[in-house]
Amino acid sequence: MTFAAVLFDCDGVLVDSEAITCGALRDMLDENGWRLSLAECMTHFVGHAVRSRAELIQAHTGRPLTDAFMDEFYHRRNVRLENDITAIDGIHDAVRHLHERCEGRIAVASGADRYKVEMMLHKVGLHHFFEHRIFSGHEMPRSKPHPDVYLAAAAHLQMNPARCLVVEDTTVGIKAGVAAGATVWAYAPPPAPTDVLTQAGAAHVFAHMTQLPTLFSEKLTQG
């Protein structure tokens, strides 16, 4: 079956945001008694909503995850993202190509909050490709690794999830796409490990966004 729609994750797929976000979180965790390197913080939190890791945070800080903590985290995160966010290399051409090939049937299905996603897409010049087709896991009954956000995006596009290609970069997101019934391709720039992504369910792994249009066109031709 050929793909009729493409559903993109946002962080780490459209925008290079994960180290920025985890940097803000690492600093706050350090202030609350849990000292982590940036790499360790990313291992624990990339792909997860911070609130979903509340028990882990409490176990290491001895403090519950409060609304006040989250409000301060969002503030620090947003300031850093507004100043430092960049697009993933090659993503503009890739999105433009898939937007044309799918006749506009592309969407963002992110585990992040809507403000963050919309702000980042505006900052890097991608928002117009996805306007009115942006979905946040924060607005779903369950966020990733559950399939809700991908199912919502597919339903909005009036597409069977089986005809959707999901582009992800984390095991959490891959599991969400697979659970939705979509085919998932994983973006994994070196030195990211590829075996864990395929074990999570990725049907294909690619290393650079410039490869995505060609891979997609080849799939259509084969179909």
Rank of each mutant, 00 (worst) to 15 (best):
A203N: 10
D148E: 07
P145R: 01
A152I: 07
D195F: 12
M159R: 11
A176R: 01
F135L: 12
L165P: 14
Y150R: 02
G201E: 00
M140F: 09
A152V: 05
L165N: 13
L165A: 11
T194N: 10
T171P: 03
H156A: 15
E139D: 15
K175Q: 15
T198I: 10
G137D: 06
E131A: 14
A207H: 14
V184F: 01
I174E: 01
P189A: 03
P161L: 03
E168F: 03
V149L: 09
Q199N: 13
L165Y: 11
V172M: 08
F130L: 14
R142S: 10
L151T: 08
K175C: 08
T171M: 12
P147K: 00
C164L: 00
A180F: 01
P145Y: 03
T194D: 11
A186H: 01
I174Q: 00
H156M: 09
R142F: 08
V172E: 06
P145F: 04
E139V: 02
P189D: 06
H146K: 12
F135Q: 12
T194H: 15
F206L: 06
P161H: 05
L157K: 02
R142K: 11
A192V: 01
F130E: 14
T194F: 12
I134N: 08
A200N: 07
K144M: 06
V149F: 06
T198P: 00
A192N: 09
F206I: 03
W185A: 04
S136F: 13
T183D: 12
V167G: 09
A207Y: 04
T171H: 05
G181I: 06
V172S: 04
P145K: 02
A180G: 04
T210Y: 03
F206H: 11
A188E: 03
V149Y: 02
H208L: 00
Y150H: 11
M140N: 10
F129C: 08
A176P: 12
P141E: 10
I174D: 05
T194R: 15
P141H: 10
L197D: 08
R163A: 13
G173D: 13
A188H: 02
Q158K: 15
P145H: 02
P191Y: 08
P141L: 09
A180D: 02
K175L: 06
P213R: 01
V205R: 09
T194I: 14
T171R: 07
R142Q: 12
V178A: 00
A154N: 03
A180Q: 00
D195N: 13
A155V: 11
L197C: 12
L157H: 05
V205G: 05
A186S: 10
H204V: 05
M140A: 07
V149W: 01
M140P: 13
A192R: 15
L151V: 07
V178F: 00
H127K: 06
Q211K: 03
